[in-house]
Amino acid sequence: MSVMREKLENTNETVFTAEFPSIDGGGMAKVEKSAARLAPWFDAVNATDNPAAHAHASNTSSAIAMKMHGLEPIMQIVCRDKNRLAIQADMMGAALHGIENISLLTGDDVTAGDEPETRRVFDIDSTQAINIARILTTGTYLSGRKINPAPDFYISAVENPAAPPFDYRIERALKKYRAGAKYLQLQICYHPDRLEKFCAGVAKIAPDLKLIPTIVLVKSAKPLGFMNDKVPGIDIPLDTINRVSAASDQADEAYKLTLELAKHALSLPAVRGLHVTDFRHDDSLDSFMYDLGQKPRN
């Protein structure tokens, strides 16, 4: 049984997940380096699927590499690059390699990436993909063709608590839950009030659905500005960016802001953990985890 399933379904423990850096060159040596940094702190790590519409080592191969290095992968599958056949093949490929955690996403548009001339696929959407993953666990492909034995996935999805239409986001979380998602990792959110409303709404209409908000470790106002300007669906209030840019020690102020957001997120209903992402060279991960009361494992 995956650690994610065990902890979220059978305990009240807080789970911590992280974004595993995309894999390009550097082979397994590079994977090992990232794994060593994350392993002491995280229950599972996201194996992304061409994040921000940039090509990298594939989701399945990355997830296998993480597993080989002792980490539990959450394998993402986005709907942008693959049709329903390829998506089911990804899921069965994950099952073949003992990858239980799969997460289904729409995917950023190709225009967000470095190859905007690419053809979009979107043969199915993320909610349909969640439902298809659930169908596979009942022992059939979408076609009805039998799978024996059926794969055993622990299915999750992603939702953006801070993008319009706000009220609908809560209903959409319920829809994803009904389709088969057991937990949602949430998009980066710099609007604590919106996050609070979303979590309270989900706790009310889908009490068994677990939420894992995302926290980003940043060292200055620059990445905040970048996310605000470039990442689809992320809005960062000007006051928040100014708070960091006006500080005499930007790194210290950014850290304080991040810690505040993390503690607030963990205090909200339905929240069962945090997803942590950073810009690779951030050295504050260890102190951040200590400040959240965590101790390194092993």
């Binding site: 729409t106 959407d125 993320s126 993008a163 689809p232």
Partner: peptide, 17 residues
């Protein structure tokens, strides 16, 4: 919808909707 989504919006909706 440019992504032809039939079950609700993606997470990329802009602040102005």
């Amino acid at each position: 919808c440019p992504k032809t989504l039939r079950n609700g919006p993606c997470g990329g909706v802009r602040e102005n909707g």
